[in-house]
């Protein structure tokens, strides 16, 4: 609790509260607005005559008899088969998270337990790879993938996303493993375990908090990726994000922008749930890298 001397003067307190309220509105209002608007018709969501239409849903009521309509969602999910993209996204995310955690845990553990000089260089190399914009690598994938005939399918994209994920995963898990005392696995080795047995029986049971946090960030990277999925997936295998981008190309002319609005809300919903349940892990993950510097 703040001491009496730390307590703010009333004026400053008011100012700070106003600032927080303004920030909260800036942060949350666009999402609420779009969520609300996604149940309206286009004439209400984009209203030239009167902006209050978007709240009351006047035109929606004229068309459907109710101020809310699920027409946008129906059009996106059923008519445009957005559910296929949703399934693709979850396939990609699931396999990316599992694979990158498996190989990243092994690598991160090795980096944290080896004192040789090359560990430093490997970490620096990973940092450089982390800085590389994924889109620059895509130009390098295209030709070989066309030649081998593996362009456009989900497994290729999954492997590429896993690889792009690795530098970050390694850094994070490296710092988590460094916080697990070395004595744990060393005593297991003294008792006659091999390094892998020590890892399997001593480290794996205690590593889950770090692994879950890292997994969250792998998930976010795979879920939010646009550069790789847009370039490496064929039209029939698209995940949600490139599909939404593709909606825009066609729907602006058809006047069906509400499909895209509904799809955007559908794609944001899982992220909301994620933040709600894993807020603590996300915050600790963001700061883990920072504190290590």
């Amino acid at each position: 609790m703040a001491s009496r001397a730390q307590r703010m003067p009333a004026g400053l307190r008011l100012l700070s509260t106003i600032f927080i309220v303004i920030w909260l509105i800036l942060a949350a209002f666009p999402f609420l607005w779009t969520l609300w608007g996604s149940f309206k018709v286009e004439l209400d969501f984009f209203s030239i005559a009167d902006w209050t239409n978007a709240i009351t849903g006047k035109n929606t009521e004229n068309t459907y008899g109710r101020p809310f309509t699920g027409a946008g969602y129906y059009g996106a999910w059923v008519t445009n088969e957005f559910w296929e993209n949703v399934i693709n996204t979850f396939i990609v995310c699931f396999f990316v998270v599992c694979t990158s955690l498996t190989i990243g845990t092994l690598g991160g553990y090795a980096l944290s337990r080896s004192g040789f000089r090359y560990v430093f260089w490997l970490l620096i190399l990973a940092l450089i790879f982390r800085a590389m914009p994924p889109i620059t690598l895509v130009a390098g994938y295209m030709l070989p993938f066309f030649e081998w005939n593996v362009w456009g399918i989900l497994p290729t994209t999954i492997i590429v996303l896993v690889a792009i994920n690795q530098p970050f995963t390694l850094w994070m898990l490296h710092s988590f493993f460094q916080n697990i005392p070395k004595e744990l696995d060393e005593s297991a080795k003294v008792d006659g375990c091999t390094q892998f047995q020590a890892f399997r029986h001593v480290i794996i049971p205690v590593m889950w908090p770090g692994v879950i946090t890292t997994g969250l960030f792998s998930f976010l990277l795979a879920y939010n990726d646009f550069a790789v999925t847009a370039m490496l997936l064929s039209e029939s295998n698209r995940t949600m994000v490139p599909q939404i981008a593709a909606f825009l190309g066609t729907t602006y002319t058809e006047g069906n922008v509400m499909f895209a609005v509904a799809a955007v809300v559908s794609a944001t919903a899982p992220l909301f749930v994620l933040v709600m349940f894993f807020q603590r892990q996300i915050v600790s993950g963001l700061t883990a890298g920072a504190v290590k510097g």
């Binding site: 779009t34 939010n224 646009f226 944001t268 909301f272 933040v275 807020q279």
Partner: peptide, 22 residues
């Protein structure tokens, strides 16, 4: 903190679209 995380966690292209429509 929950509400503050939202703009960061949202897919960049989706966040851009939400603002673009507004």
């Amino acid at each position: 903190i929950f509400f503050s995380l939202l703009p960061m966690i949202v897919t960049p292209i989706i966040g851009a679209l939400i603002l673009f429509w507004m």
